[in-house]
Design a protein around this nucleic acid. Structure first.
Length: 712
DNA sequence: GTAGGGTTAG
């Protein structure tokens, strides 16, 4: 999506920006723990060919990278034993009495031309309207232009230009005005035209106009540059944005804060956090007081990086500079808190926003509802919903859909049904494919096949497309209910309607394979899976053959996992283990668990302190948890027999299933432990914990010998 | 959308 930066500005921090580790401290200061970085600078090769003019880059004026060089050398590059404050004390860091600071931005915004009343405004607006409405053909357009009072003045032309809508019309009119040649073409005319082109994402045309300005020696100003930069950004042409920004400096034009924050956003979207901070800090050092928009850019950047300290830093900067966050800043920071996985801080920030007297809008509420849902904070989510109704806070269909997803996340079926029917009765928030998908998710997770199928039928009747997620939810639901024929039907229809099965859908089918109780059903599901992932089916057939060697399984397992997206690897492995256990192939299940651990699919499975060892099976399926437990018991038994040192307490943690729909791992492990006659007992004060003391274990091992197989 | 920059969904 993001195109790489071109040759104009490359800053390397030990090779990778993302490696630059920052540590922030409680006072909000930001320190760099990586030191050696340097700027590599080459002048852009893509500087447009244009005849020399006064607006051409001047060797006297440094490029952005040249300007940044002293910054990096003086503030960021330090010895390995010294950590420099970069953001906390900018002035002390920057002050160098022997060299005057070079400014990076103008503290004065570009002055707009003053508005003068135009008595013909109504007529001109009408002409603009007629131009918008007329056919795009040259003759029709020209016929409307006849209505313009002649000779056309700059003011009249501007008024019409401002009212034109599709960019094609704006360009036609702009070219016509140029051809009239009745007044000199000032930058404002180009700026207004560029703005219209930006709506149509016509970057090339904007760039053509920019080159025309250079050619005709029409001075580009901050408004021209910020329009070019924001259009480039809209078109994901980040290299172009940087190119034009650098060109400003080279021509001796200083960006003001609007252009500056636009370019900060460009670097932020490229994930170039260090560059953004350098630019920000460099400008701050000249005494610039950033406005809320700049802080919104920084907040979004830190959110995208999941950087909680960064978000706090933004809040602290605003506080120390006396900048009051506005609604957009709060929305951005709330969203960022969600991305950084900090629901508690998001909640406090939301309350702070309300206390400051700001009324939340749809975006605020969407962000907060989503955060509470993902955190499974049912109580907070329901309270918030109640407050929304009491305060008559604004709702739109995205918020409705987010509320439905929250209901799915925390398992609120009735509330979701109420919301869904509210939507159906509403005027502006009719349920769409997102809403229906959420309902499929809710009924599917609950295991309510009838309701899920009802939703599916309703979608077909209303012509609402089923998407891959809805299909996955349905298949999961039908699988759990062992409705294999309906499952095949849903899968086949979905594929016919153009759904491309993804890894998650394959995972869903795979879990159904592990649930099937006879080979007939299994074949039906495997036939579906065959269409989605041939290799996976081949692997299943291979691994359930007793004669397949461990080495072969290992090789194929590795290949399957590396071809699958990261988020499905553990579920895949869990399902494969379950399939083996259903076929009483315990040895193979143990091999798979070993491979899963080997390839890092189960991080944090074993946790050890001096006092206690814990087996955390919360992210494992029932079969995988049983396998892990057996494996652990085997290890512990051998340790007892060898009289190795053991902690006083041994714990198996299943969790309680915070999600209402996903409980049952504890119960199944309890019955498995009973079958194994293992010494673990369900903890009385901590749900989801199975505990054994060292003494329990030792006496159990002694009583079991020689029935427990001992291998070294 | 009144010549320019920032915020909503698996």
């Amino acid at each position: 999506m993001a195109s790489p930066l071109p040759t104009t500005l490359d800053i390397y921090f030990n090779g990778h920006t993302s490696d630059a580790k920052r540590t922030r401290f409680s006072n909000g200061s930001l320190r760099h723990s990586h030191r050696k970085f340097f700027i590599h600078c080459t002048i852009s090769k893509s500087t447009p060919e244009a005849p020399p003019s006064s607006d051409e880059p001047d060797a006297k004026n440094p490029s952005l990278s040249e300007q940044l060089r002293p910054l990096v050398n003086t503030t960021l590059s330090t010895s390995s034993t010294h950590q420099s404050h970069v953001l906390s004390k900018p002035k002390s860091t920057w002050f160098n009495p022997t060299k005057p600071k070079r400014s990076v931005l103008s503290h004065q915004r570009h002055k707009r031309s003053t508005y003068t009343y135009n008595p013909q405004i109504r007529d001109l607006r009408l002409i603009a309207q007629n131009l918008n409405d007329c056919d795009a053909s040259e003759s029709d357009f020209l016929a409307v232009l006849e209505e313009i009072p002649t000779p056309v003045t700059k003011e009249n032309a501007l008024l019409i230009l401002n009212g034109l809508k599709p960019w094609q019309k704006t360009l036609l009119f702009f070219n016509w005005v140029k051809k009239q040649n009745s007044f000199p073409m000032e930058p404002i005319l180009y700026n207004v035209t560029m703005k219209s082109l930006r709506f149509g994402r016509q970057f090339q045309l904007i760039e053509d106009l920019a080159h025309e300005m250079i050619e005709k020696d029409i001075k580009m100003d901050n408004i021209t540059y910020s329009t070019i930069i924001s259009c480039a950004k809209k078109c994901y042409l980040f290299d172009k944005a940087v190119h034009w920004f650098e060109r400003m400096y080279k021509t001796g034009l200083m960006p003001d804060e609007v252009t500056y924050s636009a370019i900060l956003d460009v670097y932020a979207r490229l994930g170039k956090v260090e560059e953004v901070l350098s630019l920000y800090e460099r400008a701050r050092a000249t005494g610039w007081k950033p406005d809320p928009i700049t802080f919104s850019v920084l907040g979004k950047m830190f959110g995208a990086a999941g950087d909680y300290d960064g978000i706090r830093y933004v809040l602290q900067e605003m506080k120390s500079l006396g900048v009051q966050p506005n609604l957009v800043v709060y929305n951005t920071l709330l969203e960022a808190m969600g991305k950084a996985g900090k629901p508690g801080f998001a909640r406090s920030l939301f309350e702070e926003m309300l206390d400051s007297g700001i009324t939340p809008n749809e975006k605020t509420l969407t962000a907060v509802v989503k955060i509470y849902g993902k955190a499974r904070w049912a109580k907070d989510a329901l309270e918030l919903w109640e407050r929304m109704r009491q305060n008559n806070w604004p709702v739109d269909f995205i918020l409705y859909n987010t509320l439905l997803n929250m209901c799915a996340d925390v398992g609120l079926v009735e509330e979701a049904e109420t919301l869904f029917s509210d939507m159906k009765q509403s005027e502006h928030c009719q349920p769409d494919s997102w809403s229906y998908t959420a309902m499929l998710n809710i009924y599917g997770s609950e295991g309510n096949v009838d309701k899920a199928m009802e939703v599916f039928e309703e979608m077909s009747e209303l012509g609402i497309d089923l998407n891959v997620m809805g299909c996955t939810c349905l298949i999961q639901c039908l699988g759990k209910a062992l409705e294999f024929d309906d499952l095949v039907k849903v899968f086949e229809t979905s594929v016919e309607r153009g759904i491309k099965p993804d890894d998650r859908l394959c995972g869903s089918l795979l879990s159904v394979v592990s649930l099937s109780q006879n080979s007939n059903d299994e074949e039906k599901v495997l036939a579906c899976l065959q269409q989605a992932n041939t290799k996976l089916v081949a692997f299943i057939k291979l691994m359930v053959e007793e004669k397949t060697s461990f080495e072969t399984v290992k090789e194929q397992f590795k290949s399957i996992m590396s071809e699958s997206s990261v988020e499905v690897r553990r579920p895949f492995c869990n399902c494969l283990i379950d399939i083996c256990r259903n076929k009483d192939m315990q040895d193979r299940a143990h091999e798979l668990l070993y491979l899963g651990t080997l390839y890092g699919l189960y991080p944090g499975l074993h946790n050890k302190t001096a006092e206690e060892w814990c087996l955390d099976v919360r992210s494992l399926s029932v079969g995988a948890a049983q396998t892990a437990m057996e494996e652990w018991m085997g290890t512990l038994t051998r340790m007892v027999q060898r009289e190795e040192e053991l902690p006083g307490l041994l714990i198996a943690q299943t969790g309680t299933g915070v999600h209402k729909f996903s409980q049952g791992l504890g119960m199944s492990l309890a019955s498995h432990l009973k079958k194994m006659e293992a010494p673990f007992r369900q903890s009385e004060d901590k749900a989801g914990y199975f505990v054994a003391t060292r003494d329990d274990l030792v006496s159990w091992v002694k009583s079991k010998v020689p029935s427990v197989a001992v291998t070294n």
